[in-house]
Design a protein around this nucleic acid. Structure first.
Lengths: 91, 91
DNA sequence: ACAATAGGCAAGCATCCGCTTGCCTGTCAA
DNA sequence: TTGACAGGCAAGCGGATGCTTGCCTATTGT
Protein backbone atom coordinates (compact mmCIF):
# COMPACT_ATOMS: atom_id res chain seq x y z
CA UNK A 1 0.00 0.00 0.00
CA UNK A 2 2.95 2.33 0.56
CA UNK A 3 4.02 1.48 -2.94
CA UNK A 4 0.55 2.31 -4.18
CA UNK A 5 0.96 5.87 -2.94
CA UNK A 6 4.31 6.27 -4.66
CA UNK A 7 2.93 7.10 -8.09
CA UNK A 8 1.64 10.63 -8.87
CA UNK A 9 -1.06 9.34 -11.21
CA UNK A 10 -2.36 7.00 -8.52
CA UNK A 11 -2.46 9.85 -6.01
CA UNK A 12 -4.38 11.91 -8.56
CA UNK A 13 -6.86 9.07 -8.88
CA UNK A 14 -7.38 9.12 -5.11
CA UNK A 15 -7.82 12.90 -5.26
CA UNK A 16 -10.37 12.56 -8.01
CA UNK A 17 -12.27 9.87 -6.13
CA UNK A 18 -12.32 11.96 -3.01
CA UNK A 19 -13.85 14.76 -5.02
CA UNK A 20 -16.46 12.34 -6.34
CA UNK A 21 -16.50 8.72 -5.25
CA UNK A 22 -18.22 5.98 -7.23
CA UNK A 23 -16.98 7.03 -10.63
CA UNK A 24 -16.66 4.70 -13.55
CA UNK A 25 -13.35 4.02 -15.25
CA UNK A 26 -14.21 6.15 -18.26
CA UNK A 27 -15.27 9.06 -16.08
CA UNK A 28 -11.95 8.84 -14.30
CA UNK A 29 -10.05 8.81 -17.59
CA UNK A 30 -11.90 11.86 -18.89
CA UNK A 31 -11.53 13.86 -15.69
CA UNK A 32 -7.87 12.94 -15.27
CA UNK A 33 -7.01 14.01 -18.79
CA UNK A 34 -8.87 17.21 -17.94
CA UNK A 35 -6.44 17.63 -15.08
CA UNK A 36 -3.45 17.33 -17.36
CA UNK A 37 -2.75 13.62 -17.11
CA UNK A 38 -2.17 11.91 -20.44
CA UNK A 39 -2.65 8.33 -19.33
CA UNK A 40 -4.62 5.91 -21.43
CA UNK A 41 -7.48 3.80 -20.16
CA UNK A 42 -5.26 0.76 -19.79
CA UNK A 43 -2.79 2.68 -17.69
CA UNK A 44 -5.54 3.90 -15.38
CA UNK A 45 -6.93 0.39 -15.19
CA UNK A 46 -3.58 -0.98 -14.12
CA UNK A 47 -3.26 1.75 -11.51
CA UNK A 48 -6.69 0.83 -10.20
CA UNK A 49 -5.46 -2.73 -9.87
CA UNK A 50 -2.63 -1.59 -7.65
CA UNK A 51 -4.90 0.66 -5.61
CA UNK A 52 -7.45 -2.12 -5.17
CA UNK A 53 -4.77 -4.53 -4.04
CA UNK A 54 -3.70 -1.94 -1.49
CA UNK A 55 -7.31 -1.67 -0.33
CA UNK A 56 -7.42 2.05 -1.06
CA UNK A 57 -10.13 1.54 -3.62
CA UNK A 58 -13.10 -0.78 -3.84
CA UNK A 59 -14.30 -1.93 -7.22
CA UNK A 60 -17.95 -2.77 -7.72
CA UNK A 61 -19.20 -4.20 -11.00
CA UNK A 62 -22.64 -3.56 -12.40
CA UNK A 63 -23.53 -4.66 -15.90
CA UNK A 64 -21.00 -3.33 -18.28
CA UNK A 65 -19.79 -0.67 -15.89
CA UNK A 66 -17.36 -0.74 -13.03
CA UNK A 67 -17.77 1.73 -10.21
CA UNK A 68 -14.81 2.72 -8.13
CA UNK A 69 -15.14 3.79 -4.52
CA UNK A 70 -12.50 5.39 -2.34
CA UNK A 71 -11.47 3.82 0.95
CA UNK A 72 -8.93 5.78 2.93
CA UNK A 73 -9.00 3.58 6.00
CA UNK A 74 -5.75 1.74 5.14
CA UNK A 75 -3.99 5.08 5.50
CA UNK A 76 -4.56 4.89 9.25
CA UNK A 77 -1.76 2.36 9.38
CA UNK A 78 0.65 5.17 8.68
CA UNK A 79 -0.39 7.18 11.70
CA UNK A 80 -0.52 4.14 13.92
CA UNK A 81 2.92 3.03 12.83
CA UNK A 82 4.76 6.29 13.43
CA UNK A 83 2.47 7.91 15.98
CA UNK A 84 1.95 11.07 14.00
CA UNK A 85 0.50 13.82 16.17
CA UNK A 86 -2.37 15.45 14.28
CA UNK A 87 -1.95 19.21 14.12
CA UNK A 88 -4.41 21.70 15.59
CA UNK A 89 -5.84 22.74 12.24
CA UNK A 90 -7.07 19.19 11.62
CA UNK A 91 -10.51 19.22 13.10
CA UNK B 1 8.01 11.88 0.15
CA UNK B 2 5.40 9.32 -0.91
CA UNK B 3 8.15 7.65 -2.88
CA UNK B 4 10.33 7.70 0.22
CA UNK B 5 7.79 5.52 2.02
CA UNK B 6 7.60 3.04 -0.83
CA UNK B 7 10.70 1.08 0.14
CA UNK B 8 10.59 -1.50 2.98
CA UNK B 9 14.15 -0.78 4.07
CA UNK B 10 13.37 2.92 4.33
CA UNK B 11 10.30 2.18 6.43
CA UNK B 12 12.45 -0.02 8.65
CA UNK B 13 14.85 2.89 9.09
CA UNK B 14 11.96 5.07 10.23
CA UNK B 15 10.86 2.32 12.62
CA UNK B 16 14.36 2.06 14.02
CA UNK B 17 14.64 5.81 14.44
CA UNK B 18 11.31 5.94 16.19
CA UNK B 19 12.59 3.35 18.61
CA UNK B 20 15.71 5.42 19.18
CA UNK B 21 16.19 8.77 17.44
CA UNK B 22 19.58 10.40 16.99
CA UNK B 23 21.44 7.30 15.91
CA UNK B 24 24.57 7.36 13.83
CA UNK B 25 24.78 5.69 10.44
CA UNK B 26 26.83 2.80 11.77
CA UNK B 27 24.43 2.19 14.63
CA UNK B 28 21.61 2.06 12.11
CA UNK B 29 23.49 -0.43 9.94
CA UNK B 30 24.20 -2.69 12.90
CA UNK B 31 20.68 -2.59 14.26
CA UNK B 32 19.09 -3.07 10.86
CA UNK B 33 21.20 -6.13 10.11
CA UNK B 34 20.11 -7.34 13.52
CA UNK B 35 16.55 -7.04 12.29
CA UNK B 36 17.25 -9.18 9.26
CA UNK B 37 18.12 -6.52 6.72
CA UNK B 38 21.22 -7.26 4.70
CA UNK B 39 21.87 -3.79 3.35
CA UNK B 40 25.36 -2.37 3.23
CA UNK B 41 26.36 1.00 4.63
CA UNK B 42 26.20 2.62 1.21
CA UNK B 43 22.69 1.36 0.63
CA UNK B 44 21.53 2.75 3.98
CA UNK B 45 23.30 6.01 3.23
CA UNK B 46 21.45 6.35 -0.05
CA UNK B 47 18.17 5.58 1.66
CA UNK B 48 18.91 8.30 4.20
CA UNK B 49 19.47 10.69 1.32
CA UNK B 50 15.99 9.96 0.03
CA UNK B 51 14.45 10.22 3.49
CA UNK B 52 16.25 13.51 4.15
CA UNK B 53 15.05 14.92 0.85
CA UNK B 54 11.53 13.95 1.86
CA UNK B 55 12.02 15.75 5.17
CA UNK B 56 11.30 12.58 7.14
CA UNK B 57 14.77 12.60 8.61
CA UNK B 58 17.10 15.36 9.75
CA UNK B 59 20.82 14.85 9.48
CA UNK B 60 23.13 16.59 11.92
CA UNK B 61 26.89 16.37 11.58
CA UNK B 62 29.29 16.43 14.49
CA UNK B 63 32.96 15.74 13.96
CA UNK B 64 33.35 12.49 12.17
CA UNK B 65 29.85 11.30 13.05
CA UNK B 66 26.48 11.98 11.55
CA UNK B 67 23.41 11.80 13.75
CA UNK B 68 20.06 11.06 12.24
CA UNK B 69 16.83 12.33 13.76
CA UNK B 70 13.29 11.32 12.88
CA UNK B 71 10.73 13.89 11.79
CA UNK B 72 7.28 12.50 11.14
CA UNK B 73 5.60 15.86 10.56
CA UNK B 74 5.60 15.54 6.75
CA UNK B 75 3.30 12.55 7.18
CA UNK B 76 0.55 14.93 8.22
CA UNK B 77 0.19 15.86 4.56
CA UNK B 78 -1.32 12.45 3.96
CA UNK B 79 -4.11 12.94 6.43
CA UNK B 80 -4.73 16.49 5.31
CA UNK B 81 -4.90 15.45 1.68
CA UNK B 82 -7.38 12.61 2.02
CA UNK B 83 -9.13 13.62 5.26
CA UNK B 84 -8.49 10.36 7.03
CA UNK B 85 -10.70 9.97 10.06
CA UNK B 86 -8.56 8.81 12.98
CA UNK B 87 -10.04 5.73 14.63
CA UNK B 88 -11.16 5.58 18.26
CA UNK B 89 -8.22 3.51 19.42
CA UNK B 90 -5.82 6.31 18.45
CA UNK B 91 -5.65 8.41 21.56
C1' DA C 1 -29.23 -9.11 -34.81
C1' DC C 2 -25.48 -6.19 -34.81
C1' DA C 3 -22.86 -2.45 -33.80
C1' DA C 4 -21.15 0.43 -30.31
C1' DT C 5 -19.67 0.83 -25.73
C1' DA C 6 -17.08 -0.43 -21.29
C1' DG C 7 -13.66 -2.98 -19.97
C1' DG C 8 -9.99 -7.16 -19.73
C1' DC C 9 -5.59 -9.62 -20.88
C1' DA C 10 -0.92 -10.14 -22.16
C1' DA C 11 3.35 -9.12 -24.25
C1' DG C 12 6.95 -5.82 -25.17
C1' DC C 13 9.62 -1.75 -24.06
C1' DA C 14 11.91 2.08 -21.84
C1' DT C 15 12.87 3.97 -17.71
C1' DC C 16 13.67 4.11 -12.90
C1' DC C 17 15.42 2.37 -8.63
C1' DG C 18 17.92 -0.08 -5.28
C1' DC C 19 22.18 -2.12 -4.66
C1' DT C 20 26.98 -3.17 -5.20
C1' DT C 21 31.80 -2.03 -6.10
C1' DG C 22 35.77 0.70 -5.93
C1' DC C 23 37.96 4.41 -4.41
C1' DC C 24 38.38 8.95 -1.94
C1' DT C 25 38.02 12.47 2.16
C1' DG C 26 38.12 13.93 6.76
C1' DT C 27 38.49 13.19 11.83
C1' DC C 28 40.36 11.23 15.92
C1' DA C 29 43.41 8.29 18.90
C1' DA C 30 47.85 6.17 19.97
C1' DT D 1 52.16 11.46 12.50
C1' DT D 2 50.06 7.76 10.92
C1' DG D 3 46.72 4.42 10.85
C1' DA D 4 42.05 3.23 11.84
C1' DC D 5 37.43 4.68 11.68
C1' DA D 6 33.05 7.20 9.93
C1' DG D 7 31.34 8.57 5.97
C1' DG D 8 31.07 10.43 0.76
C1' DC D 9 30.99 10.02 -4.39
C1' DA D 10 30.13 7.94 -8.75
C1' DA D 11 29.61 4.46 -12.12
C1' DG D 12 27.50 0.24 -13.43
C1' DC D 13 24.09 -3.53 -13.26
C1' DG D 14 19.85 -6.22 -12.84
C1' DG D 15 15.23 -6.25 -11.70
C1' DA D 16 10.98 -3.83 -10.97
C1' DT D 17 7.53 -0.63 -12.85
C1' DG D 18 4.69 2.29 -15.66
C1' DC D 19 3.10 2.61 -20.18
C1' DT D 20 1.81 1.36 -24.82
C1' DT D 21 -0.02 -1.73 -28.34
C1' DG D 22 -2.93 -5.14 -30.12
C1' DC D 23 -6.51 -7.93 -29.64
C1' DC D 24 -10.45 -10.11 -27.09
C1' DT D 25 -15.03 -10.42 -24.17
C1' DA D 26 -19.37 -8.96 -22.57
C1' DT D 27 -23.22 -5.89 -22.11
C1' DT D 28 -26.50 -2.65 -24.01
C1' DG D 29 -29.15 0.17 -27.28
C1' DT D 30 -31.53 0.40 -31.68
Amino acid sequence: MYRALADPTRRAILDELQDRSGQTLFELCVRLTGRGFTSTRQAISQHLGVLAEAGLVVIRREGRYMFIDLDTSPLQQIYQRWRVTPCESDT
